Simulated scan of single mutants.
Amino acid sequence: MKTYDIEVQNLKSARHDMGLIELRVDLTVVNLPPRDEGAASSRLRMPVEHARTLLILLKQQIAELDKLQPRSRRSGRC
C-alpha cells in the first residue's frame, strides 16, 4: 500500500449531491517512504483554522442531508 503525506493548502467549498459530500480543496501530496511502524497509512495535515472550517462545512452539509431524510429516519433509531 502506498502512503502519502497530504497537506491542505486551502478549503474552497463543500456541497452534497446524491448522498455524497464533495469538498473542493487545494492540496500538496507527497509520497512517503514505507516505514516499519506497523500498519501503513497516509497522513492528512492542515492548519487548525482549516480544520475548524472543515468541521463547520461538514456539519452544514450533513444537516442538509438530514433534512432530506423522512422524519422517521432522522431520530437515529433506524
Results as ranks from 00 to 15, higher is better:
38 G>M: 01
5 D>N: 11
32 L>D: 02
11 L>S: 08
45 R>A: 07
51 A>H: 09
4 Y>N: 03
63 A>E: 14
21 I>F: 13
54 L>T: 05
58 L>N: 04
35 R>W: 01
43 R>Q: 13
3 T>Q: 14
15 R>V: 05
54 L>W: 06
12 K>Y: 10
47 P>C: 03
31 N>V: 04
72 S>V: 08
77 R>Y: 01
41 S>I: 00
68 L>R: 10
58 L>E: 13
23 L>S: 12
53 T>M: 07
48 V>H: 05
59 K>G: 08
70 P>Q: 11
33 P>R: 12
71 R>A: 13
34 P>F: 00
13 S>R: 08
70 P>C: 02
2 K>D: 14
75 S>T: 08
40 A>K: 01
71 R>T: 07
12 K>A: 09
41 S>N: 02
37 E>W: 04
55 L>T: 07
74 R>C: 02
51 A>Y: 09
38 G>K: 00
20 L>G: 09
68 L>N: 11
52 R>K: 06
47 P>L: 14
24 R>F: 11
67 K>Y: 02
61 Q>L: 02
48 V>I: 09
32 L>W: 00
67 K>G: 06
13 S>C: 13
16 H>Q: 15
61 Q>A: 11
38 G>W: 00
15 R>W: 08
74 R>E: 12
15 R>G: 09
49 E>P: 00
73 R>S: 10
17 D>L: 14
10 N>I: 07
61 Q>N: 09
38 G>H: 01
5 D>F: 05
65 L>M: 14
74 R>F: 00
40 A>L: 10
28 T>M: 06
43 R>T: 08
11 L>W: 12
63 A>T: 07
25 V>A: 15
74 R>P: 03
57 L>D: 12
17 D>W: 13
51 A>P: 01
50 H>A: 05
67 K>P: 01
16 H>T: 06
10 N>S: 10
44 L>H: 12
71 R>I: 04
63 A>Y: 05
9 Q>V: 14
35 R>I: 11
77 R>A: 04
66 D>R: 14
10 N>T: 13
64 E>C: 04
71 R>Q: 05
2 K>N: 10
15 R>E: 14
58 L>Q: 11
11 L>V: 10
56 I>Q: 08
30 V>P: 00
46 M>Y: 02
36 D>C: 02
64 E>A: 12
1 M>Y: 10
36 D>T: 10
18 M>Y: 15
56 I>L: 05
28 T>D: 15
46 M>N: 03
12 K>M: 15
50 H>L: 08
